[in-house]
């Protein structure tokens, strides 16, 4: 496959108006990604699938990643697509698209109409991260039960406290045990006293 700068130029030329940036991976991995804006991700993905130089007909992996707010940079949820080619046996081409973290604004176009293999994985990203995919044929929860509220894999999700018995609780497990009125062994109680005195 060609160098990432060349791929970026070709893609930016093919889809006018698209904002494509290069995001580097770790120095050793040599798998740089193309960060595309939300409006043009579908067109860019279609270009990669149909262009005879690339023919990326195999969508291998769809991942959701949650980036929290850091200093003044706002947080975002990123969806990463890894594309390979079965016809030409090359790859990967990594596409990234970002959406804001607030639940009502977290929408991204779905790439399921292009690759059927993205169907279950996009459902999983919706279930665990809350990213809504516009154009997905069947967007509903896949791994958690249907009555579940909230999206568990987000970094700010607090699981329910059913820690009634914990032999050596500390830090936030200890806080939760105290709140639910669970049993705290004497050593843990000493820790609590020390923390209160500080």
């Amino acid at each position: 496959m060609e160098a990432i700068e060349k791929i970026k130029e070709v893609a930016a030329q093919a889809v006018p108006g698209a904002q494509v940036e290069i995001v580097n991976s770790t120095p050793a991995a040599q798998q740089p990604a193309l960060l595309v804006d939300r409006e043009h991700i579908y067109a860019i993905a279609k270009f990669f699938k149909e262009d005879p130089r690339f023919q990326m007909d195999f969508c291998s992996c769809v991942t959701g990643v949650d980036y929290l707010q850091k200093a003044d940079k706002p947080g975002f949820i990123e969806v990463v697509y890894h594309l390979y080619s079965v016809a030409q046996k090359h790859g990967p081409v990594v596409l990234k698209v970002r959406a804001p973290r607030e639940l009502d604004q977290c929408r991204v176009p779905s790439l399921t109409p292009l690759w059927r293999g993205a169907e279950f994985q996009e459902r999983e990203a919706y279930d665990l991260y809350g990213v809504k995919f516009d154009g997905h044929p069947n967007l509903r929860r896949i791994l958690m039960w249907d009555e579940f509220t909230d999206h568990p894999m987000r970094k700010d999700y607090v699981p329910p406290s059913d820690y009634e018995w914990e032999p050596t609780p500390h830090d936030d497990t200890l806080q939760r045990t105290v709140q639910t009125g669970g049993i705290t062994p004497p050593t843990a109680r000493e820790e609590l006293e020390k923390a209160k005195k500080k």
Binding site: E147, F148, T149, P160, D162, E164, I183
Partner: peptide
Amino acid sequence: YGDHDLQPPANREVWQPPR
């Protein structure tokens, strides 16, 4: 199935947390 957990979280007649 509840919102985040099962309702009830445990069956008190069958299970008590160990002392």
